[in-house]
């Protein structure tokens, strides 16, 4: 859901690529109604690629037209339970590195990146 927002960075600014990651799985309360509503907002290709880059292969290549509860649970796991504890998110467009520490991404921009 998050894109690079560096000034003038509009091409390839999504999805951000993960690097040097340490993952943890934190159980999150099931909220399938929310997920169903969220589906149209997803960029499926980006999500599947990102999940695979983090080693989770449960999501199918194409977005299911109708969802079973199992498929929704797999999506729940990818979206809400796999957390990057330590690592980086890197913009493929401008190269900005957003560090993640203790599970918290730092998405503050540096001075030269702030839009005017």
């Amino acid at each position: 859901m998050l894109a690079c927002h560096v000034r003038n960075c509009t091409k390839d600014n999504f999805p951000l690529a993960f690097a040097d990651v340490e993952l943890v799985v934190k159980p999150a309360e099931e909220n399938l109604d929310f997920l169903r509503r969220f589906l149209p907002k997803l960029d499926w290709r980006a999500l599947v690629d990102t999940a695979r880059s983090l080693g989770d292969t449960a999501l199918p290549d194409d977005m299911p037209a109708t969802w079973t509860d199992e498929q929704l649970q797999a999506l729940h796991h990818v979206l809400l339970e796999i957390h990057v504890e330590e690592g980086k998110m890197i913009c493929r467009g401008c190269g900005h590195v957003y560090p993640i520490q203790n599970g918290i991404p730092n998405m503050l921009l540096a001075e030269h990146e702030i839009s005017r």
Partner: peptide, 22 residues
């Protein structure tokens, strides 16, 4: 804790939101 999904550091006027309406 199972309801706290994500916390991110950024300036609300320079945020990374890619989509709205959710």
């Amino acid at each position: 804790d199972q309801r706290f999904l994500d916390v991110v550091a950024f300036d609300v006027t320079h945020g990374p939101w890619r989509r709205g309406g959710f």
